[in-house]
């Protein structure tokens, strides 16, 4: 078994940033230690030689699933917007992502 995984506060914050999560000061250490515990439990895989193995594809062996490209009945615009927290003139309203 290789040595335990080291995980810094900065790495934890970077992962949270990538996942679009905001952590409070108290949460940073909690999720750092939980992340470390999860990663530590994966170390056993290093015991296994997988050099000549391919990564799994579809687990029951399905390949190339196709269907005709035909328009079928779908949600109305009203239905699609029914759960939107914010909408305007038939569109989803979202925060601005580009600075002016």
């Amino acid at each position: 078994m290789s040595e335990e995984i080291k995980l810094t506060r900065e790495q934890t914050l970077n992962v949270a940033y990538l996942a679009d999560l905001v952590l409070s000061e108290e949460e940073i250490e909690k999720f750092r230690s939980w992340l470390k515990e999860a990663l530590d439990c994966t170390l056993v895989l290093q015991e296994l030689d997988t050099t000549h193995l391919l990564q799994v594809g579809h687990i029951t062996g399905l390949t190339n699933v196709w269907q005709e490209d035909v328009i079928k009945p779908s949600l109305t615009q009203e239905q699609a917007l029914a759960n939107a927290p914010r909408s305007l003139a038939g569109y989803f309203r979202v925060n601005c992502v580009l600075e002016k």
């Binding site: 934890t12 992962v15 949270a16 990538l18 996942a19 679009d20 999560l21 905001v22 952590l23 949460e27 909690k30 999720f31 939980w34 992340l35 999860a38 990663l39 994966t42 699609a80 759960n83 939107a84 927290p85 914010r86 989803f92 979202v94």
Partner: peptide, 27 residues
């Protein structure tokens, strides 16, 4: 939280826990 549901601050601890480790192993 744009098309339905609340924003990501409503994620519970276990969801955050799993998203964090999932994001890490996919980096």
């Amino acid at each position: 939280g744009n098309r339905y549901g609340n924003n990501r601050s409503f994620m519970g601890d276990e969801a955050v826990n799993r998203i964090m480790s999932g994001t890490y192993v996919l980096a």
